[in-house]
């Protein structure tokens, strides 16, 4: 049991998330408990507005939590400095990078910033990490292309490559499958699964592709208005957690096929 615990990369205990404004605190979701182990792929699903992005932003230290605790490698998240955090956690956000006037190679190289000197010059180790990231995401042939020339599917792979080049034990992705066609959605999620297995990185991603996530994730965090449930996908199906996600009069979940269907 003791050795098991050492492999926990990210852990949230009784976490409440939301926003602070001038006078009041708006809690979006609370009593969130889950943990991500080394080499695990964890999917985060829930309806629009339930707080998926807020949770991921809180976990990535981009906004403060309201209460509860977040541990990254057994240390409180708040105890990490910005640079220390950049060594442990990389992100792929829904927002596109502000400038697309970079080549793919330049953008992926930026992922090495936590390790480079003040000029950002790349050492052989950095170059190896960059090449490895390009190879893993099959973006080597795009290396000299400008980001504004790429399709959404290609761009998403490039963003993942940048996070990979940062070489952190934990990668957090906020809806990496939006704006993609079915093939690319499946491609991206399969890529994440492959990365988790091969590189032993822990990957936490949010998505609306619930059926794909059920097939690929090791564990899933289901965020519903009445509460959050964290378990293996099969256990969640048995417990009927996916039924609770959406209003039943519109969409039902078929526990046998693991798919949603529209109620006619």
């Amino acid at each position: 049991m003791a050795s098991e615990e050492k492999h926990i990369i990210l852990e949230a205990k009784d976490l409440a998330i939301g926003y602070f404004s001038k006078r009041k605190v708006t809690t979006v979701s609370e009593k969130i408990n889950f943990s991500v182990n080394k080499g695990e792929l964890v999917g985060l699903v829930g309806a629009n507005g339930v707080g998926k992005s807020t949770l991921l932003r809180t976990l990535a230290s981009m906004q403060p939590k309201i209460s509860g605790e977040i541990f990254l490698k057994d240390k409180p998240l708040t105890s990490y400095s910005t640079l220390q955090l950049a060594n442990q956690l990389s992100v792929v956000l829904t927002e596109a990078p502000a400038s697309k006037n970079l080549t793919v190679l330049e953008l992926v190289s930026l992922g090495r910033q936590p390790y480079t000197n003040w000029m950002g010059s790349l050492s052989p180790v950095d170059k190896k990490a960059i090449n490895g990231a390009l190879k893993a995401t099959e973006t080597e042939i795009l290396a000299q292309r400008k980001c504004f020339e790429l399709s959404d599917g290609q761009l998403q792979r490039v963003y993942i490559a940048r996070a990979l080049a940062q070489d952190t034990p934990l990668i957090i992705l906020d809806e990496p499958t939006t704006h993609l066609d079915l093939y690319h959605r499946a491609y991206v999620l399969k890529l994440l699964k492959k990365l988790a297995v091969e590189t032993r990185k822990s990957i936490l991603f949010s998505t609306h592709e619930i059926d794909l996530a059920i097939q690929l994730s090791d564990k899933m965090l289901v965020m519903a208005p009445e509460g959050c449930y964290f378990d293996q996908p099969c256990n969640l199906i048995e417990a009927g957690r996916f039924d609770a996600l959406f209003p039943k009069e519109t969409i039902t979940f078929n526990t046998e096929t693991g798919r949603f269907s529209i109620k006619k």
Partner: peptide, 16 residues
């Protein structure tokens, strides 16, 4: 160079 990706990305790469 980090800021070219936007503030959130820049911060995630260790920029103060």
């Amino acid at each position: 160079n980090a800021l070219l990706l936007g503030e959130n990305y820049a911060k995630s790469m260790g920029l103060r």
